[in-house]
Design a protein around this nucleic acid. Sequence first.
DNA 1: TGTAGGATTACCT
DNA 2: GGTAATCCTACAG
Length: 204
Amino acid sequence: MPISSAPLPHAFFDRPAPLVAPELLGRVLSCTLPEGTVELRITEVEAYQGDDPASHSYRGRTARNAAMFGPPGHAYVYFTYGMHFCVNLVCGPGLAPSGVLLRAGEITAGLELARKRRATSRTDSDLAQGPARLTVALGIDRAQDGVDLHGPVLRLLPGSPPPTELVRSGPRTGVALGADTPWRFWTEGDPTVSPYRAHTPRRG
DNA sequence: TGTAGGATTACCT
DNA sequence: GGTAATCCTACAG
């Protein structure tokens, strides 16, 4: 097996999410399911941790967010808005609840399968442009909640991080609380980065 | 080009 | 009963 396919070590994730998040840009998440393998080069992420009111872990552990309270280096998959899945990479340190939401990326392998899953996409750059689109393209759902990132299904590979001058940070997208915390990180100029949208309250 | 509203489940108040 | 780490479609300009 080539060296480049060895996943990032456990210690990489065993730090607070805001420190891990910018280092995830350019890394490759591989997802292997019976239909095939899709690989994604990460271009946009957001960090969340326990003492942050916008984090799912802020009010303590529930059945839904249990994976965030588990060991680093695993996936936390949650269901939201009645129809969408989003995936986080669980960080630390230790069992401290923190994680990095994967918001967007570029499909680098399994393009045909990703196009099939994301049939409404008009272009390849929007196959994984947005956190819920990303999980559809990779085939991630509740079955991957709590799954190890060093296993046969999910693997986080070293990839090729962008030069530091292209790494940008700013407020997180669509969050109502803690909107002033610059824990969104993206690769400047990458066409797969999702457009920033401030939180918009819903009307009844 | 942009804005508005619907879909639909888990969780919290 | 209201809101949410969202996406898609429709329709106005």
